[in-house]
Computed example of a mutant assay.
Amino acid sequence: MTTPFNDIVEKHVVKNPHLEATEWGWEKDAIGFRWVMNTLSERYDLPCFVLENGMGARESLNENDTVDDDYRIEYHRNHIQKMKNAILEDGVDCLGYITWGPIDIPSSSCQIAKRYGFVYVNRTDKELLDLRRVPKKSFYWIAKAFKSNGEDLD
C-alpha cells in the first residue's frame, strides 16, 4: 500500500537512465552527491555534515557464513571519494560522513529484506532465527576507510 507521500514522490521523480539503481529504484549517484554538497555550500555558506548515506540490498549468508557485499563497498568508496573531491578541490566545508545504521535493522516498513548495515543479523521478515551478528565484507572495509580518515579506500 502506498502512502500519499509516496504517491507525490513517484509523480515528481524523474529517473536518470544513465544511473545504476538498487532493486528498490534508488539511484546511485556519487557525482550528484558532490553537486549537492557544492550547491548547499554555495547557497548557505555553512559547514555540512553527511548523515545516513548508504544503500539497501537483499542479502543472505553465503556458504562461508559471511556476506560479500562488494556493491556496498563500491557505493561508499565512490561517495567518499566524491566527498573528498568536494572538500579538497571545491572548498566545501564538510565536518563528517555518517552511514546508515551499521547493523541490519528492520526498515521503516518493518521489513528486513532491505538490509543497510555492515553487520548481518541472522533473521528474516517472518522468523527471528538465531539473531547472530555476522560482520559483512564491508564491515572491515569501512573500518579501514574510517580509521584512515578516508585516505585508504582500496
Rank of each mutant, 00 (worst) to 15 (best):
T3M: 06
I103W: 07
I73K: 12
R132D: 06
T2L: 15
Y140V: 01
V121W: 06
V9S: 07
I31P: 00
D68M: 14
K126L: 12
V50H: 05
D104L: 01
D68V: 05
P17G: 04
L46Q: 08
P135A: 01
S60T: 14
P47V: 01
T22M: 06
Q81N: 13
I8M: 02
D125V: 09
Q81F: 13
D7G: 10
G96Y: 07
L40H: 03
W100H: 10
A113W: 08
V119I: 15
K114Q: 09
R132C: 00
K137G: 09
V13S: 03
D152Y: 10
K144W: 00
L46G: 06
A113P: 05
N64D: 13
G96W: 00
I31F: 13
Y116T: 11
I87F: 00
M37L: 11
G96E: 06
T3Q: 07
D7T: 12
V119A: 03
V9K: 12
M1R: 00
Y97D: 04
N62P: 02
N16Y: 10
D90E: 11
K126Q: 14
R123S: 05
N53V: 09
L88Q: 09
L46N: 01
N6V: 03
D7W: 07
Y140F: 15
G91L: 05
L51D: 00
K136W: 01
Y75F: 15
T2C: 11
N64Q: 14
G25I: 04
D68W: 03
E27Q: 15
P106S: 10
N85E: 15
S107V: 09
F49C: 10
L46R: 07
G25A: 09
D125R: 08
V134K: 01
I31L: 12
I31S: 13
E10N: 10
H18C: 09
D65F: 14
H76N: 11
G56V: 09
R77T: 15
K84N: 10
E23F: 12
K28L: 15
A86Y: 05
K136T: 07
V67R: 01
R34F: 03
Y140W: 13
D90S: 07
I103E: 02
M37V: 00
D93Y: 06
N53W: 04
I80P: 03
K126P: 00
E52L: 11
P135E: 01
W26M: 08
L128K: 13
G101Q: 11
I112V: 14
E52P: 11
W24Y: 13
D69T: 00
A113F: 08
M83F: 07
M55K: 08
R43E: 13
S107Y: 04
G54H: 07
